[in-house]
């Protein structure tokens, strides 16, 4: 079974801090990493391949330096890495990204399953998985928390919902996006790291994959960011002092009075 795992480079988000006075982003020691959600996609892709045989390919779109990050995936069992890198792709929103990745996937060809992370840590949109499935004209299931069965014909998996899960069956090829619960990603091995060091990442341009430049990058993106700003959390913190008994009593009082005044669902408390 041939599996393509789509990944994204993101900044290690906990390092993104805002300077509230100057309204700017503090970027000290910011590090580029593979989107943490995508590491579960990589692990799942490798596990399926280990079971069924075949090949795993990791695919990303980004600046040339992303190639180094893609090499890391070769240390945890991915067989090949492909990077779409071209200024034509710059400024892509989720629609244009879905398009470019779908062209990349068609270029790689001969695929059975595409695995994506649930969403990217920086954008949090969760749109590219379903978007690219649609562009490829194949079915998708989001938020997969477990694969119950997979063979060359179909996949049966559990999609996480707010109050449980759905069991979905669909024919291959298909796209799944996976949640953290699905597995625990392995760490690289020394031999894998050595192999990754020597590996070469295939870098493709828009032309290489036959992408229509009208549908790529900024030009192919219906949405535009018009403004960014730092959210104001004007939290009025009140510390409740005293002995534990007093603290509990004061807090309960405050909450009870507040709930009864402001909430229409008074049965809650």
């Amino acid at each position: 079974m041939n599996i393509i795992v789509c990944v994204k480079q993101v900044p290690a988000t906990n390092e993104v801090k805002m300077n509230k006075e100057t309204n700017t982003i503090i970027r000290e020691g910011i590090e580029a990493i593979i989107n943490p959600f995508d590491t579960y996609a990589i692990e799942e892709g490798v596990r399926i391949k280990e079971k069924t045989g075949g090949k795993t390919t990791v695919l990303s779109m980004g600046i040339p330096s992303v190639a180094d990050l893609l090499k890391e995936t070769l240390a945890v069992g991915i067989d090949e890495a492909v990077l779409l890198s071209d200024r034509t792709f710059a400024g892509a929103d989720s629609l244009a990204t879905s398009y470019a990745l779908s062209k990349g996937i068609e270029h790689i060809g001969d695929y059975d399953l595409i695995v994506c992370g649930k969403q990217a840590m920086d954008g949090d949109t969760a749109q590219v998985g379903p978007g690219l499935a649609e562009k490829l004209g194949i079915p998708h299931t989001t938020y997969v928390r477990k694969i119950e069965e997979i063979n060359d014909k179909y996949i049966r998996c559990q999609r996480m919902t707010e109050d449980g899960y759905d069991i979905i069956e669909m024919p291959l090829p298909a796209v799944i996006t996976v949640v953290k619960e699905i597995n625990e990603p392995r760490l690289p091995s020394l031999k894998g790291m050595m192999r990754a060091k020597r590996a070469v990442v295939t870098v493709l341009t828009a032309k290489d994959i036959g992408a229509d430049s009208d549908l790529c990058g900024l030009k192919g993106s219906p949405t535009q960011v018009v403004k960014t700003f730092v959210p104001v959390h004007d939290v009025q913190s009140e510390m409740i002092e005293g002995e534990p008994e007093e603290q509990a009593e004061k807090l309960a009082k405050k909450l009870l009075s507040m709930q009864f005044n402001t909430s229409d669902s008074t049965e809650v408390i």
Partner: peptide, 16 residues
Amino acid sequence: EEQQMIKELAAKIADE
């Protein structure tokens, strides 16, 4: 390069 790799991998296991 090999020693650096060993150190990085061991550090990753230690931290994670």
